[in-house]
Design a binder for these strands. Structure first.
Lengths: 342, 342
DNA sequence: CTGTTAGCGCTTTCAT
DNA sequence: ATGAAAGCGCTAACAG
């Protein structure tokens, strides 16, 4: 029982050496007790534990890391912590980390390749045992020396390039197929596609799947209904009026990511169209909207757990060839996608 | 330009010593170049940089930390990464960290005091320069030795106990006042209060403020309209039917936190009441609901920046007395709170 | 301007 | 079962 400051202020933290001195044992004995190594007599163990308590000793992880060469940290590099998909990932990784005595460093890229590089380089200097990331840049070659040195890299949402890494990807094509099939089944043919910049891997996969699915249904894609850009409030506003305020307006919208969907919903709220909407990616409160949001949901949790699984498998053999796992997605029907064509 | 594995697999990372050898200089010269210390001739600098590049050298932060006694790490311990409030906090801290060459460790408590303790103790072993947390437990005394040793602690949302720390708190009473004033102004008198467990600091402040505000308006609080519990889907369902399915049903609901609000919305979606709802805490997509969510919004961003400000001020003088800053909240009117009494 | 020496706090190795 | 010595990779404190 000690109140802050009572033991003196500006105190150095006690070291293992001091604990040893206090307990009247050798340094190594303290180390053994701290690390719960076998072969320490109960008497000494008790003495050491008492000294630890008296001194409020806590081991210095920096020293441990240096000596051991393992840091017990997992680096997570993602676009945004607020995105529900990445929040799930963060949660899952944190949970695993705590159960295995590791900690999680988190870095945000905001979809900027340079930031990705900066953050990753900052992180790898700390020698994380593993790096879980949603890559953006063209190549992650800059990580190669660390991968060679045994750091396990697992990517999520998109694959890495230039390094040996595992990847957990959503079944983008399957999800788009389901969405288009669903809309076509309701009688829609003028289905606008609102997606993200094609430089993004998932955006690329999804728009390709859109064209393929449309072709499969023998519907000619009206290029004026295909819009690929960063999802800003005003950009989506313009896009909406482009696809809806025209002679033959789109009767359905396929929004290809959750940021776009949020902006589409904002945009539609200011208009009076009756247009169907299916979103690739669910929103946190998609069930509370009216109509509810019909969405192709990625199982963030399954993807996160898969990533962790791959990571734990890779840890002991860091140089094994990269694996890619595709995780299925699921169309959730709630109303917005079941509005028939006008 | 090197492809992973080509330089050999399972390679050790080069050390400063090896760089020195390769560059034909002393260890310390490499250190100087790496740390951009002055007084190194351009020639040697060039040589060293070449050697660094050849060897793909990156400094080992563990060693640096050990030697320097500073880790360049900020620990963040919060309830849940997905909560928009904490997501904002995380974002702000990450941004600051990156601009100052630090990294962020993140730990989740899920509102469990034991987990809080475990996570914090795990973290402090890593000797973070600062700890930003939303405390839950009765006391954070277990951090005292580390505070004594110079770790800066700043809490957000709730104060710490048993240690000297700064705190950034929302103006809970002011927010509740605004909410009640607003509802009373619409003619409501039977205003149900749905809050969290009173063990939680903010929950306590808010329910006290609710009673005070009601008293100020000379309205007797009907205790059957006051419900304090953890926000689970079924619990809130029961609560809703308790306050709405009765002789004199509540005409307005004041939901005192965002988890409760989400569940209230889910519950109301399955019912046909016309009841006003004001939420303390906004939801991510509160503007997209219909009616829009009238909410007392905490400026997560302002609170986060305030916390960082306090932290940077505390870093150089870790033993200064704790300061508490109250951050104002703002009532955002969007429709759900403007439904008149039946 | 450059280099040498010591040692951060711990674990590893090897004695005893 | 216990301990002494060495050293992880780096920076601080001094020389030159």
């Amino acid at each position: 029982m000690s109140v802050s400051g009572v033991n003196g202020t500006g105190q150095r933290r006690p070291t293992m050496k001091e604990v040893a001195a206090r307990a009247g044992v050798a340094l190594k004995t303290v180390s053994r007790v701290v690390n719960e190594e076998p072969n320490v007599s109960p008497e000494l163990t008790a003495k050491v534990q008492a000294a630890i308590k008296d001194l409020n000793y806590t081991p210095n992880e920096s020293a441990r890391m240096l000596r051991r060469g393992k840091t017990g940290t997992i680096a997570v590099v993602i676009r945004d912590i607020g995105d529900p998909f990445f929040a799930s990932l963060g949660r899952a990784v944190e949970l695993w980390a705590r159960s295995s005595g590791s900690v999680v460093m988190i870095g945000l890229t905001d979809e900027d390749p340079e930031r990705e590089r900066d953050v990753c380089l900052e992180f790898v200097a700390r020698r994380p045992d593993a790096l879980i990331m949603a890559p953006i840049g063209e190549t992650q070659e800059y990580l190669a020396p660390h991968v060679d040195a045994g750091m396990a890299v697992v990517t999520i949402d998109r694959p890495a390039h230039g390094i040996e890494a595992d990847a957990v990807l959503a079944d983008n094509a399957g999800g788009i197929d389901q969405a288009i099939d669903h809309l076509v089944r309701q009688g829609h043919r003028r289905i606008a596609y609102l997606g993200d910049d094609e430089r993004i891997f998932t955006a690329r996969e999804r728009v390709v799947a859109y064209r393929a699915a449309m072709a499969r249904h023998r519907i000619d894609v009206d290029e004026d209904l295909v819009h690929l850009s960063e999802p800003t409030t005003e950009g989506i506003g313009i896009t909406l009026s482009a696809v809806l305020d025209r002679a033959e307006p789109a009767t359905a919208l396929l929004s290809a990511n959750n940021m776009t969907t949020a902006e589409v919903l904002r945009g539609l709220a200011g208009r009076r169209d009756r247009v169907a909407l299916v979103s690739f990616d669910d929103l946190a409160l998609g069930d509370l909207l009216s109509p509810g949001l019909t969405a192709v949901a990625q199982s963030a949790d399954v993807m996160a757990r898969t990533a962790i699984q791959l990571m734990t498998e890779r840890l002991p053999e860091p140089h094994r060839p990269g694996r890619t796992v595709r995780v299925p997605v699921k169309l959730t029907i709630r109303g917005s996608g079941e509005i028939p064509p006008a």
